[in-house]
Design a protein around this nucleic acid. Structure first.
Length: 126
RNA sequence: UGAGUAAACUGGGCAGCCGCGAGAGCAUUGAUGCUUUCGAGGAAAGUCCGAGCUCCGCAGGGCAGGGUGCUGGGUAACGCCCAGUGGGGGCGACCCUAAGGAUAGUGCCACAGAAAGAAACCGCCUUUUCUGGAGCUUCUAGAAGCUCUAGAAAAGGUAAGGGUGCAACGGUGCGGUAAGAGCGCACCAGGGGUCAGGUGACUGGCUCGCUAGGUAAACCCCACCCGGAGCAAGACUGAAUAGGAGGGAGAUGAUGUUGCCCGCUGAAUCCCUCGGGUAUGAGUCGCUGGAGAUGCCAGGCAACUGGCGUCCUAGAUAGAUGGCUGCUACUCUAUUUUUAGGAGUACAGAACUCGGCUUACAGGUUUGCUCAUAUA
RNA sequence: CGGGGCGUAGCGCAGUUUGGCAGCGCGCUUGGUUCGGGACCAAGAGGCCGCGGGUUCAAAUCCCGCCGCUCCGA
């Protein structure tokens, strides 16, 4: 992965405001109509949005830890999503990632492999 | 050198790549794109105090209610800070201290103890009466009187003693007395008066025998302070506390103004329930230049204040500070004893802004002072 | 941002107003009863009263500062 990142040729690794889920109703739609996948530390909801781009929302409950722990975990999820964007084949999906109770102690490599596994389970990766 | 005490600072470093937010400039109808600059803390935390700012039919009165509580300063203000005073702890440097009033009143002080607050009880002493015993004297020879002693009753004196208890009516000693008592004296503890010093808390001297427990972080009294709500405050726009339906209250006063009353205000209003979601399931402003930071000089023991110069240092809104790599610093671990490998890097994330307090904090640096030991 | 409630035995709760013995029910242990078990009877163990200070002779209770859980309102 890291070697691929250093190449120039692969796609956009940015993460802009338009790729974020920002409103509560957007989250509620994904919860109600989406498909859910779960591991021990992470839950992922996936729903088609018919808009031609993939959007991400992250939600971490207060049970995970203090403010520093929650904030750091959210950044790790976004970083993992950003580094996996080039490998996503399908587009037009809303994705919501939820951190569960033990997720606060994970490192970046654990988060990355967890998100990668969930995405390939959801058939978003090639 | 070791132990301790007080205070200040730091909060891994350097380089590279990818990514995020904001400002400015350029391009662009715009969304955006490019360049460049800046981008978490000492506690940003807890939300415990104090203010600025904004609104509430001006902020008026009374009663409640709340807070503070040695003195003097500082400050925009404070429950904060500084300098002192008293008390307590430590050999010491130093630390802790809600520290006004207990003769304004009320309450409480379990168990024990005579008694937990001003009085009774036991006891001690004196006098009188009665009863018993011993001794002496008189004499009519078994009675009287006197002295001593034991017991009971009555009248009085006293607060020394009473195994308790956290606490017992100032303490110890000598004198004194029928027995006793600050009744008198010496020393000690406290209190009143007066004089001196100090702005003051208070300290020191002299003098008065003046000495009725503790608890006010129990009610309370005294002195001082407090209008309420909070940036989801509030303002603006292109309908913007939208516009609707049903029920109820309302000039006999709704509503608002802290709880209550008075006073003020004064109605297409107010309260409840249901349903609805607009052009973007709103946006912009408030939103960061301020009791700002820093250097020098002056005043002050200090907190702090004044003058001059320099600087601009986060402004998000599902909420920007992250990830990876290399070298290095520190800690841990197993192998090895020399290097290499692995894991980890304190507490913790701005949300209107300041001044404080409290709490959390791996490791490191510096300075002042104290004690002990050694050497000179 | 503002406000309220609760932390006591393994579990569910009293006691806090008015300071002085830490209690109740279920559960647990031992013994009895029964052929055995349950039920019943008798005895017993189990507590830093969330944590740290302070006031007081004495604190679960009063005061101050923290920690955790939980519920409202805008």
């Amino acid at each position: 992965m890291k070697k691929m990142n250093s190449k120039k040729s692969n796609g956009d690794k940015s993460f802009r405001k338009t790729e974020k889920l920002r409103k509560n109703y957007q989250f509620q739609k994904v919860y109600k109509q989406g498909k859910s996948l779960a591991t021990k530390n992470t839950v992922m909801f996936i729903r088609k949005n018919f808009k031609g781009c993939n959007r991400l929302g992250v939600s971490i409950s207060k049970k995970v830890g203090k403010s520093v722990v929650r904030h750091r975990l959210k950044r790790l999820y976004i970083e993992a999503f950003r580094n996996l964007k080039a490998n996503i084949v399908k587009s037009g999906f809303d994705i919501v990632i939820i951190g569960r109770k033990g997720a606060g102690s994970m490192t970046y490599s654990e988060v990355f492999s967890e998100i990668k596994g969930l995405m390939s389970w959801g058939k978003l990766l090639k």
